[in-house]
């Protein structure tokens, strides 16, 4: 049985025929839509490498059944930069050396964007560390990652203050 779902991925509405209801959102992105920026580190919700935003919220795409997300808006790492302008969180990851191997990075960045939207941490590093704890990094780039999130969060807050 083929199920047809419609997703808006990085702003583009896509109708996807799903011939197998077992396909997770992560495998749909990676293996069928060939959006491979989103990574699979554990496939079990334990590492955060697969983090994407669904309807504006960060979730683990490896534990989301694609068919169950009919109609959803999905934002992945590929959809962040506009033209050749990096998203401020992406830029902050480069400036603050927020990665080594880069494998956890798409998930860390998507998670950071979700975190900033949730607006619960303020600029308290302890709260940011807690709120980023669903994203593991085996290389040990934690210091740069948290500095990047803090930096980006402050920059965005500053922008908002200025435009308000």
């Amino acid at each position: 049985m083929t199920l047809s779902i419609s997703l808006t991925v990085n702003g583009v509405r896509t109708d996807v025929a799903i011939d197998d209801p077992r396909v997770t959102l992560l495998d749909l992105l990676r293996e069928r839509l060939h959006l491979t920026g989103t990574k699979k580190g554990c496939d079990r919700g334990q590492c955060g490498a697969c983090t994407v935003l669904v309807d504006g919220r960060r979730i683990n795409s490896c534990l989301a059944l694609a068919v169950s997300h009919d109609g959803a808006e999905v934002l992945t790492i590929e959809g962040l930069a506009s033209g050749d302008r990096l998203h401020p969180v992406q830029a902050a990851f480069i400036d603050n050396d927020g990665f080594q191997c880069g494998f956890c990075t798409p998930g860390q960045i998507m998670s950071a964007i979700g975190l900033i939207a949730e607006a619960e941490t303020g600029d308290d590093p302890e709260r940011i560390r807690e709120a980023m704890s669903g994203n593991l990094c085996r290389c040990g780039a934690h210091v740069g990652i948290i500095e990047a999130v803090l930096d980006a969060r402050n920059r965005l807050a500053e922008d908002e203050r200025r435009t308000a």
């Binding site: 919700g45 955060g48 983090t51 919220r57 960060r58 979730i59 683990n60 534990l63 989301a64 998670s111 979700g114 975190l115 949730e118 709120a131 980023m132 704890s133 669903g134 994203n135």
Partner: peptide, 9 residues
């Protein structure tokens, strides 16, 4: 419990 991502879902 769990992580921010999991709690969101």
């Amino acid at each position: 419990g769990a992580s921010a991502q999991l709690r969101n879902a």
